[in-house]
Amino acid sequence: EQLARLKREFNENRYLTERRRQQLSSELGLNEAQIKIWFQNERA
């Protein structure tokens, strides 16, 4: 579920704002660094 949600977010926007990253962190139970790194890896 977390992965599917991250992929949906990535398809909508390849870059997250700090606020959006905080929201996802709270909703998915991941820390902000994990989300940031995931997005960086997807863009690579």
Rank of each mutant, 00 (worst) to 15 (best):
36 K>P: 01
43 R>S: 12
12 E>I: 09
33 A>S: 10
3 L>H: 08
23 Q>E: 15
17 T>S: 14
20 R>P: 04
40 Q>S: 06
12 E>N: 11
7 K>L: 13
16 L>T: 02
4 A>F: 00
3 L>P: 00
43 R>H: 10
26 S>E: 15
20 R>G: 06
28 L>K: 00
31 N>W: 07
31 N>A: 13
18 E>H: 12
14 R>W: 10
19 R>T: 14
40 Q>W: 06
4 A>R: 07
32 E>R: 03
25 S>P: 01
42 E>N: 05
21 R>Q: 14
5 R>T: 05
10 F>H: 01
33 A>G: 08
1 E>G: 10
30 L>M: 14
2 Q>I: 15
12 E>H: 07
5 R>H: 06
36 K>Q: 15
27 E>W: 04
1 E>S: 08
14 R>H: 11
20 R>M: 13
12 E>R: 09
7 K>H: 12
31 N>V: 06
4 A>M: 09
38 W>M: 05
22 Q>A: 13
34 Q>K: 05
28 L>M: 06
5 R>K: 07
1 E>D: 12
5 R>E: 08
10 F>Y: 08
16 L>K: 01
38 W>C: 05
37 I>D: 14
43 R>C: 12
18 E>T: 14
4 A>S: 07
19 R>N: 12
32 E>V: 09
12 E>V: 05
10 F>V: 03
24 L>H: 01
31 N>E: 13
16 L>Q: 04
30 L>F: 02
38 W>E: 03
8 R>S: 11
9 E>V: 06
11 N>D: 13
23 Q>H: 10
42 E>Y: 05
27 E>S: 04
3 L>M: 09
39 F>S: 00
21 R>V: 15
8 R>K: 14
3 L>R: 04
4 A>T: 05
15 Y>K: 10
34 Q>E: 13
31 N>H: 10
2 Q>K: 08
21 R>F: 12
2 Q>D: 07
23 Q>N: 09
25 S>G: 07
20 R>K: 12
26 S>M: 15
2 Q>G: 05
17 T>D: 14
26 S>D: 12
5 R>Y: 05
7 K>T: 08
24 L>V: 02
30 L>I: 12
29 G>W: 01
13 N>G: 06
32 E>S: 09
4 A>K: 07
39 F>E: 05
9 E>R: 03
36 K>H: 14
1 E>P: 04
25 S>F: 06
23 Q>W: 10
29 G>T: 02
33 A>E: 15
43 R>Y: 11
10 F>E: 03
43 R>N: 13
41 N>V: 07
27 E>Q: 07
41 N>G: 03
11 N>Y: 10
20 R>A: 11
22 Q>L: 11
25 S>A: 15
43 R>G: 08
7 K>P: 02
4 A>D: 11
32 E>P: 11
34 Q>S: 10
13 N>E: 04
25 S>Y: 08
25 S>K: 04
18 E>A: 14
11 N>L: 14
13 N>H: 11
32 E>Q: 06
22 Q>C: 11
3 L>D: 06
6 L>R: 02
4 A>C: 13
3 L>K: 07
15 Y>G: 06
40 Q>G: 05
17 T>G: 09
41 N>L: 11
2 Q>P: 02
25 S>W: 03
39 F>T: 00
29 G>E: 05
23 Q>G: 04
20 R>F: 07
8 R>E: 13
17 T>R: 03
43 R>P: 04
8 R>L: 10
14 R>M: 10
40 Q>C: 09
5 R>I: 09
4 A>E: 13
17 T>Q: 04
13 N>I: 04
32 E>C: 05
15 Y>I: 12
12 E>F: 05
4 A>W: 00
15 Y>A: 07
40 Q>F: 09
26 S>F: 13
12 E>D: 09
37 I>K: 12
35 I>M: 03
1 E>W: 12
4 A>V: 07
40 Q>H: 08
17 T>K: 04
20 R>V: 10
22 Q>P: 03
43 R>Q: 12
32 E>M: 09
3 L>A: 05
37 I>T: 09
2 Q>W: 11
27 E>Y: 03
26 S>L: 15
9 E>Q: 03
35 I>C: 06
42 E>H: 08
15 Y>N: 11
8 R>C: 12
8 R>V: 11
29 G>F: 03
35 I>Q: 00
36 K>N: 14
20 R>N: 06
30 L>T: 00
41 N>Y: 08
7 K>I: 12
41 N>R: 10
11 N>R: 11
5 R>A: 11
40 Q>N: 08
29 G>D: 07
17 T>P: 07
6 L>G: 02
22 Q>K: 14
33 A>T: 13
34 Q>M: 14
40 Q>V: 06
37 I>A: 14
11 N>H: 12
42 E>L: 09
31 N>R: 06
27 E>V: 06
22 Q>D: 05
19 R>W: 08
22 Q>W: 05
29 G>A: 04
12 E>T: 07
7 K>C: 14
40 Q>L: 06
34 Q>F: 15
22 Q>S: 10
25 S>Q: 06
14 R>L: 00
9 E>G: 01
28 L>E: 01
18 E>M: 07
24 L>W: 01
35 I>Y: 00
31 N>G: 12
21 R>Y: 12
44 A>F: 08
22 Q>R: 12
11 N>E: 14
2 Q>A: 12
38 W>H: 04
9 E>I: 06
36 K>L: 15
14 R>K: 13
22 Q>M: 12
5 R>Q: 09
12 E>Q: 10
26 S>N: 13
17 T>N: 12
8 R>M: 12
40 Q>I: 10
6 L>C: 05
38 W>L: 04
21 R>H: 05
28 L>I: 13
16 L>V: 05
22 Q>I: 10
42 E>S: 04
39 F>R: 00
24 L>A: 02
21 R>G: 13
31 N>T: 15
7 K>Y: 07
37 I>N: 12
26 S>H: 13
2 Q>N: 10
38 W>D: 03
20 R>D: 08
23 Q>F: 07
44 A>Y: 08
31 N>K: 08
36 K>I: 15
27 E>G: 01
3 L>S: 04
44 A>D: 12
14 R>N: 12
11 N>T: 09
44 A>S: 09
15 Y>Q: 08
29 G>M: 07
18 E>L: 07
6 L>Y: 00
1 E>R: 05
